[in-house]
Design a binder for these strands. Structure first.
Lengths: 230, 230
DNA sequence: TCGATCGCATTTGCATACACAATCGATCGA
DNA sequence: TCGATCGATTGTGTATGCAAATGCGATCGA
């Protein structure tokens, strides 16, 4: 077994075991290693992580609270099963929340926050040129989170991040279409324009459209490999 | 879909011990029996509920995921401490989400749902007359949840209920002002009017104002017994 | 007198053990 | 042959025990 010394040799060995298991499971669900509907046996997971059932249980409870897994009393847990309809509902919800955020942010952001957002947006130009999906995904996250922050409503920002992460776990390869990348940036550009003009309502509508475009892009992907299953 | 037949929410003796403890703690936090900032000792709670630490731990984890308690690693948990600023942020968030819901609901609700909502609203008239706060609170919940449901976006509805419940735990005696009761119903009336006219944007603005009025009403209450903490 | 360090007590985090509920298969009955 | 009921097995829910970590107090030093 792996020796658990206090010395952190490989990364984040230093934390609560239940948290590490939770993060690992989150990743595996997000990447699809754990397919939707897959049964989650506590003992089996415990063996796999070299731990006992206790931290596994706590991890599963946390994931259940986050909506990534479903726990039925005395019947074990399964990876949350997402129907296309449900995913579209989540996208719509995220789109509406993002629309709220950008509206509030437009009216409340400080000059410093605005310049930071502009800087961030400018940075995305070369990324689109190179077509680096992962880099754009990372930028995209920063861009949107900068907007959350600029609402000056930390609770709303937390909610936005939470629901976005929850969706992220099922979004995966959504941006893997070359065209979508450029269009995404164009839409950001339009949003930035509205922000610059101080038109929160306009920014809000454009953000909603931006998110729904991403949803449409994803929906094609869903149609393609319709799992139908388990 | 009502897939929640397993977990009976409250009152029932016959559920999972950890769920019962979670519900009990939720109530105690909501009613203020457990003051904000109060330390939550696992063994102590276990003794009080006549259980072992295991279900108590799971309950605490779930509450932490819901934001009602804060857990610091190896340092125990405390009841989440809400500053007035934070509560106002939560109210604003709820207001915006409610505004989303009523807009979508206006455009999507079925005739049956509309008549149900009207019926519900009419029922509130005698309640206001008698000034029964608890009855109005119950009605109010039904009214808003009917709107959530009418969005035909179950994910959004779940989010709305979750964030509303989270705020509920700190709202307590907010409606205990006779005037507020009648004004609340008047605001509902205005919202119903906008819905009847099919004007989702108008309904949305009125809903936002409605929620922010409730927040203002609460803020006075907060000012009065400003706890400052422990 | 004030600060720091060491040791103790309390409490969390994890492991292990046990009991009961749910599922699955087999046997019995029609 | 098909259905139902009953038992065995699997796995969750809970209890208990142990070890490490944190916080506090006392003692030592300046």
């Amino acid at each position: 077994m792996a020796s658990n010394f206090e010395t952190e040799d490989d990364g984040d060995d230093r934390g609560l075991l239940s948290d590490r298991i939770r993060n690992a499971l989150t990743d595996e669900i997000a990447t699809g290693t754990l397919a939707a509907g897959a049964a989650l046996d506590e003992q089996q997971l415990a063996d796999r992580f070299g731990a006992s059932r206790t931290p596994v249980r706590e991890a599963l409870r946390q994931l259940a609270a986050g909506g990534l897994v479903e726990l039925r009393a005395r019947r074990g847990g399964v990876v949350a099963r997402m129907t296309p309809e449900r995913i579209m509902e989540m996208f719509e919800t995220v789109a509406e929340i993002e629309a709220i955020c950008v509206r509030l942010a437009t009216y409340r952001m400080t000059p410093l926050e605005r310049s930071h957002l502009i800087e961030l947006h400018d940075l995305s130009q070369p990324i689109v040129e190179t077509g680096d999906f992962d880099a754009y995904d990372s930028f995209n996250r920063q861009f949107h989170e900068a907007i959350y922050h600029a609402t000056h409503n930390s609770f709303l920002a937390e909610q936005a991040i939470a629901v976005r992460n929850r969706l992220n776990a099922f979004r995966r390869t959504q941006l893997r279409q070359g065209e979508r990348l450029r269009r995404s940036r164009d839409e950001h550009e339009a949003i930035m324009q509205a922000i610059a003009e101080g038109d929160g309502e306009m920014a809000s509508r454009r953000m909603r459209a931006h998110m729904l475009n991403a949803a449409t892009s994803l929906s094609r992907f869903i149609e393609i490999n319709k799992p139908g299953g388990v």
